[in-house]
Design a binder for these strands. Sequence first.
DNA 1: CCGCTAACATAGCGCCGTTAGGTTAGCGAG
DNA 2: CTCGCTAACCTAACGGCGCTATGTTAGCGG
Lengths: 236, 236
Amino acid sequence: MTAKSIKNRDAPRRTRARRGEGERLREQILEAATRLLVETGDEDAVSIRAVADAVGVTPPSIYLHFADKNELIFAICERYFDRLGQATMEAGAGSEDPIERVVLQGRAYIRFGLENPEPYRVLFMRKASATPLPFQYEKILESSGFANLVQAVSDAIEAGRLDGDPMLVAIYLWSAVHGLTSLLISKPDFPWPDKDAVIEQVTRSAIRGVTVGVNLGPEGRPRGKGESTRRARGSI
Amino acid sequence: MTAKSIKNRDAPRRTRARRGEGERLREQILEAATRLLVETGDEDAVSIRAVADAVGVTPPSIYLHFADKNELIFAICERYFDRLGQATMEAGAGSEDPIERVVLQGRAYIRFGLENPEPYRVLFMRKASATPLPFQYEKILESSGFANLVQAVSDAIEAGRLDGDPMLVAIYLWSAVHGLTSLLISKPDFPWPDKDAVIEQVTRSAIRGVTVGVNLGPEGRPRGKGESTRRARGSI
DNA sequence: CCGCTAACATAGCGCCGTTAGGTTAGCGAG
DNA sequence: CTCGCTAACCTAACGGCGCTATGTTAGCGG
């Protein structure tokens, strides 16, 4: 009780919440942790101790609202996850053409990832053991983003514009845009060509890969409209 | 010197290296660390202390051969990086057709990633600040894998089979295969369709996206052989 | 006014990466 | 054959981490 009490820390002497207002701390924690994550751009900077300091509280108090650190991290990133879905959805609404819809969604997806690299990395580039199950499964399937992609793909297939199984095609397109996004995030010092050019290349070429009306060259196994890509071919 | 000396640890009482044989420890460290990484499948299990214990040495001795932990981790993964390049190169040699070459390379790439998920994750899915510059730049550009991909793409373009700028097309194809690889690694609990089917979909459709001889449907801006994809189109 | 409990804090455990500074052992010089 | 030099290690510890068991305080209901 004597000395050492001079906590010249960051936070402005937070006043204890009133009875029944315990949830206020949760919001303050999320706010401070989000700031830490985006300002440092480094997940590791979001330590329980740093967040507690920023909020003006002691580390154990964090655990009154989050089971562990990972839950806090994903509570932050869940908001970005939702915004990603929203952004792609809104972008897709920019056209009536089902194919152009997909392209618009893809471009918006990549751009969002590049604008929020660390949340994107947490959400989509982490090791599985550090990713809560919902963020591997339901959250994705039920997200407006993925659902909208599958919908747009299905529409395009039904309209005779795309070819293949909706789920397989959606995953393929997702792979392409996620691949570019994640590479741009983890290898910023790679000698990338003009970023917009790369984004255009990936989104346009990817959709072109499943667009109908393609006749391959003489040596390349020609594929008619009869033989679809619904079922995978053997092994080769 | 009295008690506490009973180190019932893992290693079998390593004998000190002779003069001039200090490099022996480096190999033993790499060996033990590699085992730890692949057996646990978790980079975090490769702690300096765990490696030291496994080798039968004290933690500071690690720093005689590696500047920091990251250098150790990437020394491990560099071998996998080389093997990835080798694997894709050998796979590509399985065909004379430049397009089929690319497909074979892509399939080998994905398979290698799935067989070595944690090394792949370290090499290609880490945050940039934790990835040494060579692994963002030179190592990739000069790797047999990437070089071979660019070569195969260039050959195919020159043969009139593919369309576009070699570097942009190579990056596009890399994005597709890396995208699927990384998603399969970080979201193993996602309800993926049959894995081989997804791999076929991605590799086949991706290459199809840049294959010549494509005529889009009526509404989709038709593109002749004159208008190439060399330069990126405006904004949309 | 008082006690109950929500809303915190104190203190500390075991882990981590890393470092400063000792110790030991083998080889070459004399 | 010894002796010193230095390569090849070790001891001890620092500061930071996630997390927990346990203590304290403050405000509202009775």
